[in-house]
Amino acid sequence: MAHDIDTLSGTEVSRTSMPEEKRSDHALIEATKSGDEAAFGEIMDRYRSPITNYLYRFLNDYEEAVDLAQETFVRVYFAIDRYHTQFAFSTYIYRIATNLAISEIRRRKRRRLMSLTGLFQSEEDTQVEFQPPDTRKLQDTELVEDERSQIIARAIAALPEKYRIPVILRDIEGRSYDEIAEIMQLGLGTTKSRINRGRGLLKEKLQHYL
């Protein structure tokens, strides 16, 4: 009996000491579909910070970024049966996050339009300052960046949407050109052109720091 116990104990020890094989995103999705909640938790572990960071750079608002990042995962969860594996999961989740962020930007625009000042804002103004920089101080002291970083962040946030998305995905998130083209549902040439154009606009604004 004691031998059995030892044997079982030894088996258990050997199991936990084995390096756990890292499952692919697709495997985690399939597991989630079959009711494995831990698999979904693992997806969140992998993507919560990248998505939060992406949305933070997009909106320049940490709390809003966290809120939309959480909403992104909720939408992934409820639409998980509609996910098809011909796309990389990262492409899929970044696209959802991008769509949510664009909706948020448009909601802000509508809110601004409804205000008295927004009623008289010219079209030119809206193009140049597509997203007004959020100058509120961040609540989390760990996120307080130095002045230089804040200026860069505001410059990014002031980029037109069509340039901001690919520039953040490429230069901050490090996604590939192909993946960015998939996320934005654009051709590769157009994607590269927009990235370059976005960088050019930033170069003009950040000349002092280059």
Binding site: A69, D171, G200, L210
Partner: peptide, 20 residues
Amino acid sequence: NEPVSRLLGELKHVEAPSDF
């Protein structure tokens, strides 16, 4: 535009909060 790319790459990555 490579310097711009490097500048953006130096930005600190924010983390999701613990209660995410």
